[in-house]
């Protein structure tokens, strides 16, 4: 069995060598997952805010559904996206299958409920604090949504990070819709799965450590920026 120290050495070697294939895989992972989180934020943040602010029939049910969708198995999302973009599927003409575009779509589907649900819960708390004040100032629902999104921006950064973590970590969806094609759709997690299936466990774990370090750095950067700005913006 490979020891952890083997894997750390492998990870270190990978990083130090600046291996071109590794850089390509890391870059694609970041491009796919960051784009997916951006799209998911564009959908999920307003959705979460509306669910927090607007009362309408079926709202309770929708909140339950969005919360439940946080637990969507990536492989199920992958399967649905695969069948959608399959040449014989409804959107086959787009020719997204086995391209990064399909991976972005799958991860967007996966991440949107996380961002929406976390945003709703954060903004519902903030609404409790702001509601009367905003109504007295003459805010309509749109104003309330916009105000909450802006004033909740530092807490919402955490929701985005949770989404990014999920996107970078999942393998089931991108494997199915991307196909783990070398130099085209191979990302960190599918590369790890491949090395595991080749029994190259130290390399697989080494890649895992690299992925962990990237996630760590991303979180540190976002939280660092957030904390600096937050300290500047309010107590």
């Amino acid at each position: 069995m490979p020891t952890l120290s083997d894997s750390f050495l492998t990870a270190l070697g990978l990083i130090v060598s600046g291996d071109a294939d590794l850089i390509e895989i890391v870059a694609l992972s970041l491009r796919v997952s960051l784009t997916a989180v951006l799209l998911a934020a564009l959908i999920g943040l307003p959705l979460g805010a509306v669910l927090a602010v607007v009362r309408f029939p079926g709202r309770g049910l929708l909140i339950v559904v969005v919360n439940a969708l946080m637990g969507l198995p990536p492989v199920v999302v992958g399967l649905v996206v695969y069948l959608t973009f399959s040449a014989s599927g409804p959107l086959g003409v787009l020719e997204f299958l086995y391209t990064p575009a399909a991976m972005i779509v799958a991860q967007t589907v996966l991440v949107t409920p996380i961002i929406a649900a976390l945003a709703r819960s954060t903004l519902a708390d903030l609404l409790g604090e702001y509601d009367e004040t905003l109504r007295v100032l003459g805010a309509n629902r749109f104003d309330v949504v916009a105000t909450l999104l802006w004033d909740g921006r530092f807490s919402l950064a955490t929701a985005l990070l949770a989404g990014l973590g999920r996107a970078l970590a999942e393998v089931g969806a991108v494997m199915l819709v991307g196909g783990n094609i070398d130099h085209v759709t191979r990302v960190m997690t599918t590369a790890i799965a491949l090395e595991t299936s080749r029994g190259a466990l130290p390399l697989a774990l080494g890649l895992g450590i690299v992925l962990l370090l990237i996630t760590l750095v991303l979180n540190a950067v976002v939280l660092g920026v957030r904390n600096r700005m937050e300290a500047h913006a309010h107590a």
Binding site: R31, T99, P100, V105
Partner: peptide, 8 residues
Amino acid sequence: ALLTLAAT
């Protein structure tokens, strides 16, 4: 847009 973002 997606293809541009995802351009290989």
